[in-house]
């Protein structure tokens, strides 16, 4: 069981690293949203799943409730993260930011 937990947690940390490096490397605001919003969500899902499995391993009512709370965090993040991403995109569009394209228009 320890191997499963370790594997999930390392995968989650890998997704977190990808998200951070993607924020640094991508050329403009719109494309930076792709790693920021979603790779972080996936990393959070995997790492919190690992922690929930670790907490629920020695079974009692208290630890079961704690594991359920951790899964509740995952559900909340899965609902709210696209909404937050959409709010940021909407702010960018209304302020008139031009998206970066390969042909060399716009962008920051």
């Amino acid at each position: 069981m320890d191997i499963v937990i370790g594997f999930l947690l390392v995968c989650g940390l890998l997704f977190f690293t990808g998200g951070s490096i993607g924020i640094l490397r991508f050329p403009d605001f719109y494309s930076r949203l792709h790693p920021a919003g979603k790779l972080d969500t996936m990393g959070l899902l995997l790492s919190l799943l690992a922690m929930a499995v670790y907490v629920m391993m020695d079974f009692s009512i208290a630890s079961f409730l704690t594991g359920l709370k951790i899964l509740l965090i995952v559900v909340i993040v899965f609902v709210t993260s696209p909404t937050a991403t959409h709010a940021i995109v909407d702010a960018g569009v209304r302020a008139g930011l031009k998206p970066w394209t390969k042909e060399g228009g716009g962008g920051v």
Binding site: F29, R32, L33, A84, I88, A95
Partner: peptide
């Protein structure tokens, strides 16, 4: 400013874990 907002959002979701 919105780039800074993206950075803050990423830090926040990492803080949860």
């Amino acid at each position: 400013v919105l780039d800074r907002l993206i950075g803050v959002n990423a830090i926040g979701s990492k803080t949860t874990a």
